[in-house]
Design a protein around this nucleic acid. Structure first.
Length: 771
DNA sequence: GAGCACTGC
C-alpha cells in the first residue's frame, strides 16, 4: 500500500491542524501518521470537501463549488457514505442499487477517488455508462462539483472524443470504450477501480464488461469493482459477483399512480389516442407522454391527435394542444420541439394548454423530458431478436417487461406526482409480462463480440462466465462466421487476419472487406463504403415528397448496385460546397453523412496503424469498379443470392426465397448478387445489393464454397460447372506444365551431358598435354 | 414496390 503521507487531500490537513474542526481532527490524528492503508471515513472525506483549497488542484474553492456542495450533501447517497466506504474497504465487489435521483452516478466515483487516491500510483478510476451523452454530461457535472476543468482531473472518453489528460483521476466513459481499452491492456492495469453504472440495462457491452471485470478481479486483488443498478433485481447481480454485499439507496422521485384498463384493448393505437384526449379534457395541467413502437405509428397517431384535438377544442372549449413526435431518426431541429413549453390558454383564465409527446422507447432511457405528468403505456416496443438458424437479426413488436413498464411509469414522476395509464389489465401485467427484458446478449448475433473476447484473451467461450449464458447455437454461428472469414484457425485461435479485423470498430465482414481491399488496390473506396454501411440510412423519403426523393436518389444510382451508389453519394457529399443545404436539396440525411465521414476517418487511422496501404485504382480503368466489387465479395461471400430461372432469388447455402428490396437502385435482376442485410418483414428482402460474378466466389472464398455441403439448386449446379471447368483447365495447365517441365529436364540433361563430355574431353586433352 | 426500437466501438 502507498504511503498515506502522499495523500494530496490529507497533506494540507497536517499543516492546518490548529484550525481543524472535529471532523478534520479525526482525519488527522491516528490514520495517516501511522501509515495505515488508504482508507478514509465519511467524516474525513467531508472535512476535505469543507476545506478552503482543493486537494486536487491546490487552488481555493470557488463560490460555485460551495453552492453545489450544499446540494450534494443533501443527496440520499451521501447519508450512506460511511456504509459504502465500509463495504468497499472489506470487499472487492460491491453492488449498489439506487433509483433515479439518488446521486449515485455523480457521488460514488468521487467517494472512491477520495478513498483510493489512484493518482498516487498514477492510476485512475473509471465509471462506465451505456450512452455517450450520459458519459459527457455526467463528467461535466462532476468536474463542476470538484471545481476542476473538464478534461483535467475529471474527464471523459467516448468514440471520436478523448477528453482526458495526464492529470485525469476520474474518467467517465462508455462501456464500449473501456472494452476497447481492455483489448490492448487485458488487465486494465491503468485503473485502480471500475464502476459499472446502469448495469440493469444489460446492454451487450455491459454484460461482456461484467464478465471481464470478474475475470480481472480474480487476477488483480488490488482492483475494486462497484456495480450500480436502478432496479431491485439486485440478488442476481450479488450472486454473480461472488455474493457481493448490497447497498440500497433510496431515490428521489414523486409518487406515480398506476391505472389499468378493466378489459384488454384490441387496438392499442386507438386506445392511446382516446386516453390522451380524455386526459386533456378531464385532468389538471401537465404534459402527456405516449409510448408507441415506431416512426410510422407515431406519425399516424400525431395526425389523428391533431385532428381530433381540434374538434375537442371546438366542441368542449378545451385548452390548445401541442403535439410532438419523437424518435431517433427525427432530424435534430424537430427533436428540439419536445422541449418547447405547452401552449398558453387561448384566453386569459381559459383552459390551460397541454403538450403531448408521442415517442418510441428513446424516451424510456435516453431522453428526459421535463414537465411530464401523465404517461400512457400501451405495453409494446420494437425489440431486436436474433434467429441463429437463418442468421438473421430482425425487429419485432413485442410486449415489454414489467421492469420496462415500471421505468415508463417513472417518467411521470420526475417533477411532481403523476399518473400512468397502462392500456392493459392488471392481471395481464402480473401474469403475461416477463419480469425483465431479455438481455441483449440473448438477442444478438455475436460475431463481433466473440472476436473481441478472443482478443481479450478469453479462449474458452463455452465456459465463459456470463450473467446469462448465450445459446450454444449462437456461439457456433459466430465461430463459424469468423472461421470462414479467416479470423480464426481450425483450433479457433485468432489468426493474423483476425487480429487485424478486431482492430476495426465495425462488423467483422466490413473489416475483412477493408483488409482484403489492399489486394485489389482500392482501400480508399472500400473505406468509404464501409463507413456508409455503418451509419443509419442516408436516404430520406418523406411521405409528401416520395417521387421527388426517388428522383434525387436516382441521380446517385450506379448500374452495378447499391454499394457503388453509396460510394457515389459519399463522393458527391465530399465534393459539395454547403453540406447541409446540399443534403436538404438531395433528400439526404446530413447527420448520417457527417457520421459516415467521421467513421471513415477513424477507419482510415486504424488501417494506417495496421500497415494497410491507402490506395485507389485508375478511375478510368475498366477494372475500377469490378475490383471494388471483388473486395466487397471478400467480406460478404456468405451473403449471396442467385436468380433462379423462375425469376426468384434464392440465398446460396440457405435456399431462402428473397426479394430485392424496393429501395434498391438495381432495375434489372443480376444473376448473382451480394447483399448487406436480410430484412425480415411481411416478406423476406435483401437490402443494399450489388452484382458479383460466380467465379469470384470460388476464387475468393474456396473454403466456404466447398459445394458438397450445399443444398441442391440452380446456383449450386452453376458453381459446380465452374469448378469443373476450372479443374479441367487446371488439369490442362498442369499437363502443359508437366510437358514443359519434362522437355526442360530433357534439355537440361542434354546440356549437362554435353558439358560433361566437354569436361572429359578437356581433362583428357590436359592429361595428354602434361604427358 | 417498402420500412426504420435503441445504443455502442
Amino acid at each position: 500500500m502507498s504511503d498515506i503521507r502522499n495523500n494530496p487531500y490529507l497533506a494540507h490537513m497536517r499543516d492546518g491542524d490548529a484550525a481543524s474542526t472535529d471532523g478534520r481532527k479525526e482525519g488527522t490524528s491516528a490514520s495517516f501518521n501511522a501509515l495505515v492503508p488508504l482508507q478514509t471515513t465519511a467524516a474525513q472525506q467531508e472535512a476535505v470537501e469543507n476545506d478552503e483549497c482543493s486537494g486536487l488542484t491546490g487552488r481555493p474553492y470557488t463560490q460555485k463549488y460551495q453552492n453545489i456542495l450544499a446540494k450534494r450533501r443533501d443527496l440520499p447517497v451521501n447519508k450512506q457514505r460511511q456504509k459504502f466506504l465500509d463495504l468497499i474497504h472489506n470487499n472487492q465487489f460491491v453492488v449498489l442499487v439506487g433509483e433515479t435521483g439518488s446521486g449515485k452516478t455523480t457521488q460514488i466515483p468521487q467517494y472512491m477517488v477520495y478513498d483510493m487516491l489512484p493518482q498516487v500510483e498514477g492510476k485512475m478510476i473509471a465509471c462506465t455508462q451505456p450512452r455517450r451523452v450520459a458519459a459527457t454530461s455526467v463528467a461535466q457535472r462532476v468536474a463542476d462539483e470538484l471545481d476542476v476543468k473538464l478534461g483535467q482531473e475529471v474527464g471523459y472518453s467516448i468514440r471520436f472524443e478523448d477528453c482526458t489528460s495526464s492529470k485525469t483521476v476520474l474518467k467517465y466513459c462508455t462501456d464500449g470504450m473501456l472494452l476497447r481499452e481492455a483489448m490492448s491492456d487485458n488487465l486494465l492495469s491503468r485503473y485502480s477501480a471500475v464502476i459499472l453504472d446502469e448495469a440493469h440495462e444489460r446492454t451487450l457491452n455491459t454484460d461482456i464488461l461484467m464478465s471481464l471485470m470478474k475475470n480481472i478481479a480474480s487476477q488483480r486483488l488490488d482492483i475494486k469493482i462497484v456495480v450500480m443498478s436502478a432496479t431491485l433485481d439486485s440478488e442476481k447481480f450479488q450472486k454473480y459477483f461472488n455474493d457481493a454485499p448490497l447497498l440500497s439507496v433510496p431515490g428521489r422521485t414523486f409518487p406515480v399512480e398506476i391505472y389499468y384498463t378493466p378489459e384488454p384493448e384490441r387496438d392499442y393505437l386507438e386506445a392511446a389516442i382516446k386516453t390522451a384526449l380524455q386526459i386533456h379534457a378531464a385532468e389538471p395541467e401537465g404534459d402527456i407522454l405516449v409510448f408507441l413502437t415506431g416512426e410510422e405509428e407515431i406519425e399516424e397517431a400525431c395526425r389523428l391527435l391533431r385532428a381530433r384535438g381540434d374538434e375537442l377544442i371546438r366542441r368542449a372549449n378545451s385548452g390548445p394542444l401541442l403535439i410532438v413526435p419523437l424518435y431517433s431518426t427525427l432530424p435534430p431541429n424537430m427533436q428540439q420541439k419536445i422541449f418547447e413549453k405547452a401552449p398558453e390558454p387561448r384566453t386569459k383564465g381559459g383552459a390551460p394548454g397541454r403538450k403531448i409527446v408521442v415517442s418510441t422507447n428513446v424516451a424510456e432511457t435516453s431522453l428526459t423530458i421535463d414537465g411530464i405528468v401523465y404517461v400512457i403505456d400501451p405495453g409494446f416496443a420494437k425489440q431486436k431478436v436474433y434467429n441463429p438458424r437463418v442468421r438473421v437479426e430482425s425487429l419485432l413488436v413485442s410486449p415489454i417487461s414489467r421492469a420496462a413498464a415500471q421505468q415508463r411509469a417513472g417518467r411521470a414522476g420526475r417533477t411532481r406526482p403523476g399518473k400512468c395509464f397502462r392500456l392493459y389489465t392488471e392481471k395481464s401485467f402480473n401474469n403475461d409480462l416477463i419480469e425483465q427484458t431479455y438481455p441483449e446478449i440473448l438477442r444478438s448475433n455475436l460475431g463481433s463480440i466473440v472476436l473481441q473476447l478472443k482478443k481479450l484473451g478469453i479462449n474458452d467461450l463455452v465456459h465463459l462466465d456470463l450473467m446469462d449464458p448465450c445459446a450454444p447455437e449462437v456461439l457456433m454461428r459466430a465461430l463459424e462466421l469468423l472461421h470462414y472469414l479467416g479470423a480464426l484457425d481450425d483450433d479457433a485461435n485468432l489468426t493474423d487476419i483476425g487480429h487485424a479485423i478486431s482492430e476495426f470498430p465495425i462488423d467483422p465482414q466490413l473489416a475483412k472487406m477493408i483488409i482484403s481491399a489492399q489486394h485489389y488496390g482500392c482501400t480508399n473506396e472500400v473505406l468509404s463504403i464501409a463507413a456508409m454501411l455503418s451509419v443509419p440510412n442516408v436516404f430520406i423519403r418523406p411521405r409528401e415528397a416520395q417521387r421527388a426523393a426517388d428522383m434525387a436518389k436516382a441521380e446517385f444510382a450506379h448500374m452495378d448496385g447499391d454499394h457503388m451508389s453509396l460510394l457515389n453519394v459519399y463522393h458527391a457529399y465530399k465534393g459539395c460546397a454547403e453540406p447541409t443545404q446540399w443534403c436538404w436539396d438531395n433528400f439526404l440525411q446530413y447527420r448520417s453523412l457527417k457520421a459516415a465521414d467521421n467513421i471513415r476517418e477513424q477507419l482510415r487511422r486504424v488501417a494506417a496503424k495496421n500497415d494497410i496501404p491507402l490506395v485507389s485504382n485508375d478511375f478510368n480503368s475498366p477494372d475500377y469498379y469490378p475490383l471494388i466489387r471483388k473486395a466487397l465479395t471478400a467480406g460478404y461471400f456468405m451473403q449471396v443470392a442467385h436468380l433462379e430461372r423462375n425469376g426468384q432469388y434464392l440465398t446460396v447455402k440457405d435456399n431462402q426465397i428473397v426479394l430485392l428490396h424496393p429501395s434498391s437502385v438495381l432495375e434489372r435482376k443480376p444473376e448473382w448478387v451480394v447483399y448487406n442485410e436480410f430484412v425480415l418483414t411481411k416478406r423476406h428482402y435483401i437490402r443494399t445489393v450489388t452484382e458479383v460474378k460466380p467465379e469470384w466466389l470460388l476464387e475468393i472464398a474456396p473454403q466456404y464454397y466447398d459445394l458438397s455441403g450445399f443444398p441442391p439448386c440452380e446456383g449450386k449446379r452453376i458453381l459446380e460447372k465452374i469448378v469443373l471447368k476450372n479443374a479441367i483447365s487446371l488439369e490442362e495447365q498442369e499437363s502443359k506444365k508437366r510437358k514443359k517441365e519434362k522437355s526442360e529436364k530433357r534439355e537440361k540433361k542434354e546440356k549437362r551431358d554435353k558439358s560433361e563430355k566437354r569436361d572429359k574431353k578437356d581433362k583428357k586433352e590436359k592429361k595428354e598435354k602434361r604427358k
